[in-house]
Design a binder for these strands. Structure first.
Lengths: 129, 129
DNA sequence: ATAGACCTTAAAGTCGACTTTAAGGCAAGA
DNA sequence: TCTTGCCTTAAAGTCGACTTTAAGGTCTAT
């Protein structure tokens, strides 16, 4: 049971053009039939969702390329992959902290604007360092 | 006490070229001296840090442009500004949730790779929907 | 007065991640 | 057979957010 690029695109939720682009970058390599037409398999779904998820965490196509190459080389590259994942985890943690600070600022500013109509002379105190 | 673009760039932590770009986009408009040289003031620091912070929350230059224009129009545009800030807050919340999920995935995958050397036949169970 | 460090502008270039275009191939249904 | 709808490729185009370049002006110190 194989999927055409259009079907597969609908399953994983990205345009076919993106799948072709990712393939050019080496991230997903489906088999081809006798007419060079791509045939995606059931098993490609999990891997594709995984790399889309990593992308969503901020990982670049370059990094995903490395990860994909290491994966193809087998278990001896687990340390490299762990390293990449741990670095990403750290970056995600930092990004979340930054967003938390943004959220705090937004909350304060929103509160400020809600007060201001009752108190027009209010001035927003941007926290100086 | 006015700052040159180079001094101001050092204070707020962005290249002078970026300050020129933001000015072209209408975000920060310092006065000019008799020779057209920019003079940033103490008071520009807070505003600049504020827009940099909003940028860091994912706000585009286009949106910051709107915000800046509204601000120049005075208190009657507070509703528009509130609206923009509230929308951004929602987007930040969603982004944080997405990152939390990424963090969970990374944690599971890292755990998996740490186990695998002890148990080479392990297969990562990517959570299917 | 000349070198060096700053500043000015407009315009072109860069980067990553796609997306679109152009030109064509193949297969199934009316 | 011919139209429809999917597929193929390589190459060019787009987008946002800067960054770099080119050509020149001005101030200060030696």
């Amino acid at each position: 049971m194989a999927y055409s690029i259009g079907e597969f695109a609908a399953i994983v939720g990205v345009p076919a053009s993106t799948l072709r682009y990712y393939e050019k970058e080496g991230l997903i390599t489906p088999r081809r039939d006798a007419n060079q037409v791509r045939e995606y398999e059931e098993g490609d779904i999990g891997w594709t969702r995984f790399i889309l998820h990593l992308k969503g965490s901020g990982m670049s196509v370059e990094e995903l390329k490395s990860y994909t190459e290491w994966r193809a080389e087998g278990d001896k590259t687990i340390p490299q992959r762990l390293d990449l994942l741990e670095k990403r985890r750290q970056l995600v943690r930092e990004e979340m902290q930054k967003l938390q600070q943004s959220l705090d600022l937004l909350d304060r500013k929103i509160e400020f604007y809600r007060e201001k109509p009752n108190n027009p002379k209010l001035v927003f105190a941007y926290p100086h360092p």
